[in-house]
Design a protein around this nucleic acid. Structure first.
Lengths: 229, 229
DNA sequence: ACAAAATTAGACACTCTTGTCCAAATCGTC
DNA sequence: GACGATTTGGACAAGAGTGTCTAATTTTGT
């Protein structure tokens, strides 16, 4: 369709670009309609290619689905580790820094397109592809939680927190900062920035009540809305 | 088979029994295969009736699906409220009592057949039936969380806990005691009794670190005592 | 036992989808 | 501009699933 009008960095355009386009459209359709309900014609239309091109690139529906999951898994993991790299190892204001971290995690990894899609595919089709999702499980939550636990352990060792079991604390941290987003997650929606902030703020406050080293028990209800990108 | 020997209140047995059988089989198949992937013949076979009987009772596939969701919603809500009724209002050992409550909640409401099925259907098909799941949302989590918050408020008022916002505390309680079961939930599996216990134990310990009145009770309960039953 | 209601099995038309094949058009590259 | 690879649109066969219909059978209520 378009001869050459992409000003960015795409040397090989048509061939790989179409492949990517197909995988992205497929992710969208698989999520919306489920594996059985997904229609190759619709995927092709949404990707702006012909049905035959879909088959040329990916063989059949099942292979396409697997490609979608692998692609999402990879991108999500990359995003999560990139975000974990921003963990506040030397916090100035511990509460504000943890809230910022939680918001980044939610915004960039859990609530974004890839995160929502991957979660939904795992929930809907996980049982049908045990080996595929076992792979995700090891590469994703397994390593993520370990990495996060290590960061919390460091914070505790530096005297900023009082933690018995860093692995438990890491999981509970994530559970707390997402506590108020469960319904949005269930229905596949995207929480508003406000909801994310609120949930993270409340979650971190409770987390610090449990694991913080209380210099002076401050029960000042505040709305720290300083969010770094 | 049995001519007329129903001792209870079931004059027409086969008729209603078949209806229930169909709905249960449908729940199982819809969950396993998704709405689009579910096959009426399979549902009929799994229910032990003929396909025509399915159509006689429920009209078409979509109506059957709606009946399934309503049925699950109703039973789940009943279970949840029955379990909330066992909340430890006058705890002897607060930690042990809360762990017991959390385990009951998980075992009887969240990890059981109905809970797993309903969760999966909401996640997979929620966006397709907005009004149906809006109904679930109001009747389910909305009222559940309120009821639980009221119980926590009462505990706080009685001096057992130190809680700012009972609604937040209730949601965080649930998030904490389920923190380590997320992956099982994702993949639709049933956590072992051990896992449930472990997660509840760790969750309650953290919850009490955050909201417990640590022996040296110094703060007076000064939250609004609006505790309705 | 008898009549009404419900259930069954099977055939059926219809639609939708997958995956293949092919000739024509297009694109990328030289 | 030309050549090879890719893409396209459309037709196609094969299969699966929905929902209807019917005649025969079973169950239920009286």
């Amino acid at each position: 369709m378009k001869p050459g009008a992409s000003p960015d960095t795409f040397p090989p355009r048509s061939h790989e670009a179409k492949r990517i386009s197909v995988v992205e459209a497929a992710a969208s359709v698989f999520c919306r309609e489920g594996f059985a309900g997904a229609n190759i014609d619709l995927i092709a239309a949404e990707a702006g290619v012909s049905r035959q091109t879909v088959y040329n690139h990916h063989g059949d529906k099942e292979k396409l689905f697997i490609a979608v999951v692998r692609d999402l898994t990879e991108r999500c993991n990359a995003g999560i580790f990139a975000t974990i790299a921003t963990f506040p190892d030397q916090p100035g204001d511990l509460e504000a820094d943890l809230v910022g971290f939680a918001v980044r995690m939610n915004r960039n990894c859990i609530c974004n397109r890839d995160g929502r899609f991957l979660r939904k595919l795992i929930q809907a089709e996980g049982e049908r592809y045990p080996e595929l999702f076992a792979e995700w499980r090891e590469q994703g939550p397994g390593r993520t939680w370990s990495a996060l636990a290590a960061r919390f352990a460091r914070l505790a060792y530096a005297g900023h927190l009082s933690i018995d079991d860093p692995d438990v604390a890491a999981r509970q941290f994530l559970a707390l900062v997402n506590a108020e987003l469960q319904i949005s997650f269930m229905l596949g929606g995207t929480p508003t920035e406000e909801e994310v902030l609120q949930s993270a703020g409340n979650g971190v406050r409770t987390f610090l009540r449990a694991f913080g080293r209380h210099k002076a028990a401050s029960h000042a209800p505040r709305k720290s809305a300083l969010v770094g990108a």
